[in-house]
Design a protein around this nucleic acid. Structure first.
Lengths: 149, 149
DNA sequence: ATATTAACTTGCATTTCGCAAGCGATAAAA
DNA sequence: TTTTATCGCTTGCGAAATGCAAGTTAATAT
């Protein structure tokens, strides 16, 4: 999707070259807000990403250190994906983006509780999302026999 | 770049269908953070957008109510672009995205003052960016002979 | 042993992108 | 007033990305 040499050193361009396409941010969403971890879960999202594109995006995100993957110890066919520490820093932008969409799409499917929580307690809301993922991360790291692919 | 029927009503998908490409967010950046107003100014940015793509993105953003355009009263060749009230709501996501890029690009060109201001006084910083654009908006609306195209 | 599931690849048609060139209207220079 | 330059585009076309369907391999369920 993009070449290796950045077009500029602008921080916004850096982000655009990371998730400036029609799918990457939806994968991040699935990880952060919908708790998805597996290929077929991402593929089953409403937007219906093609499996070749999904495969490509997961590879790109892994190569750039946003996510990492490992084999599911309970089913060796399965691969589990999760955000890295760097990937967790996409949470604040993601929440702001969601808030924009929820505010301006007249037919948004965003739950009212999301909008409310964002408006009344943005900091706490973001902190909660972080916390949830950080705990999932720890739980996994302390498991035995986990190998990153 | 995208069709008229949304793939889903997810608020993040709404945003992706608005600026999920390699250029749109850079145009917004130019408007919000670099104070650009004209076609040739956007075209002169570091990333070197092609003029046909720029033309397309400006039309799309206008059609979706993010920006509006008018003729420059001082030079009839020129077209001036600016954010609408809806477009102003892209400022918080944009700042968070910039903060992510500034934090994770080891060779970022983001000025230290930006990162500092963001870390020490995010709210005030964002409020300033808003204020600046709101004033520019008012100044223009009170001018005579301004026609939206 | 057989069928099913998971995570991908592969092939190929369609769409979008990106570069270069051109164009009509306006404005500046000679 | 003729010429030249600028502005905001549009057009043509090759290259790259996307999207759909089908196939593949390894592991698990029946």
């Amino acid at each position: 999707m993009d070449c290796d040499k950045p077009r500029s050193r602008c921080p916004i361009n850096f982000a655009v070259e990371l998730f400036g396409d029609r799918w990457t941010l939806l994968v991040i969403r699935d990880l952060v807000l919908l708790g998805k971890r597996r290929f077929t879960e991402f593929a089953a999202s409403d937007e219906k990403i093609a499996t070749n594109i999904l495969s490509d995006r997961l590879k790109r995100l892994a190569k750039r250190g946003i996510i990492e993957s490992r084999q599911d110890p309970k089913d060796k066919r399965r691969v589990l994906y999760q955000l890295t520490e760097v990937g967790l820093d996409l949470i604040p932008p993601l929440i702001e983006i969601a808030a924009f969409g929820a505010k301006h799409d007249p037919d948004t499917a965003a739950p009212a509780e999301f909008t409310e929580r964002y408006q009344n307690d943005r900091e706490g809301f973001i902190a909660d999302v972080y916390r949830r993922h950080r705990e999932a991360l720890k739980k996994i790291e302390t498991q035995s026999g986990v190998k990153k692919s």
